[in-house]
Structure formats: structure tokens, C-alpha cells
Design a protein around this nucleic acid. Sequence first.
DNA 1: CGAACGATTGACT
DNA 2: GTCAATCGTTCGT
Length: 238
Amino acid sequence: MTRRRVGRPPPATPTAGPGSPFPRGVLAGPSLDAARAILGALLVRDADPGDPSGERRVGRIVEVEAYIGEEDRASHARMGPTARNRVMFGPPGLAYVYLVYGMHHCLNVVTEPELRPAALLIRAVEPLAGEERMRQARAADRSRRSDAVARPVADARLAAGPGRVASAFGIDRSHTGLDLCDPASPLRLELPPADETRPDVRATPRIGIAYAGEPWASKPWRLVVPDSPSLSGPRGGR
DNA sequence: CGAACGATTGACT
DNA sequence: GTCAATCGTTCGT
């Protein structure tokens, strides 16, 4: 069934060549500006050296949430620096990966200057390459669960949610501290193709943070590319 | 040391 | 729509 997509755009554009690293200076700025800029950018994971048959995985970031400052009651930084959130207080461009609900990993990109804790949660990615490897990684994670049931997943939904992004790209807490702006990093961010027009962006409240109370629960700090078929949620939450 | 609680997902009524 | 899976982090005793 879900073998190969037919309507894939011709790879005439150098999506194959090494893209430009995502500029750290953008991530050093205000988190909402960085969030807007990172939409449309690429998340890249090289094939593992020990896995010669492995594919490179690439996806377009289409949904993010900003967690801004120690004062943000929804942020892991709300209790000050701890062993878990320490990297959020570090320099921009580093990865912060944590485990939620005891079973899912979530990838964040640290933003704002050092000592100011802030990050962007990568909530959804539109697969562009390596879908086979993503599906394989998702299946391997799922098979570990006691209630696992094999179910088909469309290419566009392989990384449609924060836990799915980490699963599809094989990301876990050991990746915390990786420099996502370093072109030599096996997991990194790249600028969108230069000819690509800036995507439309829509802002909504953040998901799953009611515990934070107001005004934090209502801050429109979730930014999405509304046209994407890869947004999180059962029906691709616009 | 114990216990409550998730920046979620997927199965099921 | 409801609910369980599963474990690291945090906080209270």
C-alpha cells in the first residue's frame, strides 16, 4: 500500500547537496522571531556510520512551540536550572531532548542568549527524504510497547507530532547538547532552499500545558504552517 | 525513600 | 469521546 509516493516534486533543485547551516544568530534572537524563521527550515539526520544501508532523513519543520524564560509557567525552566533543563540556560542552537510520559522523546532547539532559558519544541515535520528509514524507526519504537498493533502510516504523518518527530528521526536524550547549527553534526538544521517562498504562519495556544494556568496557557506561542498535511493532532490541527 | 505527574500517543467504546 | 502505557524528574516526608 504505502510504498512510494507518486507525486513527488522532481529533485531538480539541489535538495541533494549540502544545505546551508541554520544561522545561530537567528536563534539567539527573540524566541518568537526564531520560531517564525525556523518554520520551513530542514531537520537533517545523517545515516548512522554503523548502518551503511541507512538512509539520510530530511524533513521540513511545519509546527513549533516556544517556551520562553524562567517566568513561563509552562516551561521546564520554571523551577530554575536543574540537571534535566540545564542546556536551556546554555547557548542558542543546542538540542534539548527530554522524555515525556515515560515513553516519548521531544526535540527542542535552544534559543536566546546564554543564561536566558528558552527553547523551541519541534512539534511536527513534513518528511522530504528517508521516509523508509523513518517508518522503520517508528515501527521499532512501537513494537516495544505491550499494546502494540501494526497499523499503516502515511508518509506525511510519519513525524506529525513531537513524539513522532523524535521517533522517526531516532532522537533520544543522548542527543541533548548537540549543536544543531554545526554542519558537521549528524543531527542538524539547514536553511530552506533559497528559492522557496516564506510559508504562511498561524499562531495558536500551546498544546498540553493547561497546568501552567493563565496567562501562559493562552499565549499564542504555537506556530504552524497551516497548509501542511503533517501537523500534529488526529486531524492535523490548524 | 515514596509518590505524583507529565511540552504524548494510540487503542478502544 | 475515554483511558492506559511507562519512567525520569521533582518535591514532600
